[in-house]
Write a protein that binds this DNA or RNA. Sequence first.
DNA 1: TCCGGCTTGGGAAATTTGCCCGAGCCGCCC
DNA 2: GGGCGGCTCGGGCAAATTTCCCAAGCCGGA
Lengths: 217, 217
Amino acid sequence: MTEVAAKGVSVLLVDDHPIVRQGYRRVLESQGDLHVVAEADNAADAYSAFKAHDPDVVVMDISMPGASGLEAIRNIRARNPRARILVFTMHNEAVLVKAAFGAGASGFVTKSSEPSAVVKAIRSVNRGERAMSDDIAHVLAEDSLSPSGSVLDQLGEREIEILRQFAGGATTEQIASHLNLSVKTVQNYHYLIKAKTGARTDAQLVRLAATCGLTKI
Amino acid sequence: MTEVAAKGVSVLLVDDHPIVRQGYRRVLESQGDLHVVAEADNAADAYSAFKAHDPDVVVMDISMPGASGLEAIRNIRARNPRARILVFTMHNEAVLVKAAFGAGASGFVTKSSEPSAVVKAIRSVNRGERAMSDDIAHVLAEDSLSPSGSVLDQLGEREIEILRQFAGGATTEQIASHLNLSVKTVQNYHYLIKAKTGARTDAQLVRLAATCGLTKI
DNA sequence: TCCGGCTTGGGAAATTTGCCCGAGCCGCCC
DNA sequence: GGGCGGCTCGGGCAAATTTCCCAAGCCGGA
């Protein structure tokens, strides 16, 4: 380790919108102790940039085109398990939050947060603490989270298969027919999957399946 | 015209994410001639701020909670038909672009654009010109060439907005609350959208919205 | 062996869907 | 002006689905 820590916190910014990155950079650098050492606009570049710059904190929007942001988190953590990744996105669904923490994120802050809260979260994760914005804490609290890993890890084979077909656009009858199950059973799985993943809506389920790479859109 | 240029361009920033506004403000003000005179995080406040400050250019993200951004555009234009409004959003669906220009926007720039392109667009609309980013021009060009048109072209403004929120993971109650509609109306729109697009499943609807660029996953 | 999890479905109440309807409003065309 | 068609907004009601509860068989592990 160099003396970088004493001089402040180095940050890798990952967001697919250039001007948004530009804005963050200015907000962060106006703090004095935060230094943006690199930017990336997709998952692959984020990984390359992480390897090249070894930043103290990665601030990442996980809703990017192309590869999943969750996958990027996993890749970075696989390379360096001590990496600090702060997810910074406008989404606030419990499923995504759990998936992000499950993938190895250290913090989750929504873009609805005040700049000061974001800066505070960056410093927190840099100290090795877990950080999340108030609205996320509220969402998780309501969801009464279970201490588990990746969202898909909670699902059995059948559940994953049914989720895949469902997210792919199949009707309940079609799934039942494909898998030789009763419609009732498929409905029960449907309900169970939502309960396990914390998805409140079919749409959230589809998004979950997509972000986890279970289905492509 | 020359006097205005000498004094700079006053800007009203409308975006529902505080830190995003903060970032834009810094980016714009670093240009020297652009001055952010007010900010707003919803359509109603945008209108109030416009009345209070009469800015040269309104830079607005149309994907905000509450009333439609398109509605805000119409309100502002109704008050002052010479108002210059630059839509600045991450969406790049042809339908949305056309709707925005139809509502009275002077420009449409995506957040994928370089900061320099955004700044250029602000100066353009301030001169009374129409402005759009390259990707938007591309989208519109392809759209005008396609004989069969997008599926979304069959949908009205309200239907598109409801589809967008639904595909984004919002529940029926949340959508009804956001748009000040009864749950029943949202349900009816839900059904109507499925009928119009031919989607048999909510999942298919989400995929449709995603492939049309209405929502990101 | 017994526990726990997966798989498969029944049942019943609550909710939503599917499709009908009408009313108000606005723009367009004759 | 008058009619026509569209979008918007919601009521109504039967049919379907969702939401939970439950049980039973199976299988792997402690």
